[in-house]
């Protein structure tokens, strides 16, 4: 790997992915170029089925690219996965129902062979971070959807990854809970300085969180526009009242409409 790519937390060059099935082929991704600097926060927004999850799954080594190159911290996704450099937060909380909250968070550490005492301690710290310190002995079903998603975030953070891949983590939540978790995510990210790739359908969420927003169109899935969000961090509740915030919301909405119009 070249020294230059070391500076990128995530990088895709001319990435393409074609799914072949009996019903016909789907070009899920085509000529996708994407660069997220280390410590950057990139959101991806686009119409349903445009290939956002496929892109994230390519970075997480869950999907093999058909063409192009892709790297996480300058490494192949498979290498980065083996080195546990990224954590994934799935669209659903994806917690194991037979494990307590604490034992769900310790799972990645257990896989790494961390001894019980220190993995419990780390997990407890992660639960503190997401504000669920008193729920460690509960089972997932005893928690609300928002709390479950916070457990999933704690789990992804437990191995202290330098890259966080989040697929619509707050997609199933109501607006108030989502706003609160956005604030929490900002606070957590401020302490971690991880690279984040964040998929969302919410324009305000994308603007509030990101340093850059990639807008995608579908069939084939392409990045049509990159929008920089020049609102300084740390961001807080007042950020949503700034005039720049509104302007960016309008700009992203326009870009999204144009991207959708490209869809046949």
């Amino acid at each position: 790997m070249s020294g230059e790519s070391q500076n990128f937390g995530l990088r895709a060059t001319q990435l393409g992915k074609r799914f072949s099935s009996k019903g016909g082929d789907v070009q899920a991704l085509e000529n996708v170029d994407l660069e997220v600097k280390q410590g950057g926060f990139m959101s991806i927004i686009g119409p349903s089925g445009c290939g956002k999850s496929t892109l994230l799954r390519a970075f997480s080594d869950l999907v093999e690219p058909s063409t192009g190159e892709i790297s996480v911290n300058g490494k192949l996704p498979s290498e980065a996965r083996a080195a546990r450099e990224f954590g994934v937060v799935f669209q659903s909380p994806n917690l194991l129902p037979w494990r307590t909250v604490l034992r769900n968070v310790t799972l990645p550490l257990q896989v790494m062979g961390v001894d019980r005492q220190s993995r419990n301690q780390t997990a407890q710290e992660m639960l503190d971070l997401v504000g669920l310190e008193s729920f460690s002995r509960h089972h997932p079903w005893q928690l609300s959807g928002g709390m479950q998603q916070r457990v999933a975030i704690a789990r992804a953070l437990s191995t202290n990854p330098s890259v966080l891949l989040m697929d619509e983590p707050f997609g199933a939540l109501d607006e108030i809970t989502r706003d609160r978790l956005n604030l929490e995510l900002m606070r957590i990210w401020g302490n971690l300085s991880a690279t984040i790739l964040f998929i969302t359908h919410s324009i305000t969420e994308a603007v509030f969180l990101s340093s850059q927003i990639a807008v995608m169109s579908s069939r084939p899935g392409r990045i049509t526009e990159l929008i920089d969000v020049n609102i300084p961090y740390p961001r807080n509740t007042e950020t949503r009242d700034l005039p720049e915030f509104y302007e960016l919301v309008i700009e992203v909405r326009r870009a999204l409409l144009e991207a959708s119009a490209l869809t046949t």
Binding site: L62, A82, L107
Partner: peptide, 10 residues
Amino acid sequence: EHDELMRSIS
């Protein structure tokens, strides 16, 4: 979906 989780944490 837990199978993907298991793979993602190697």
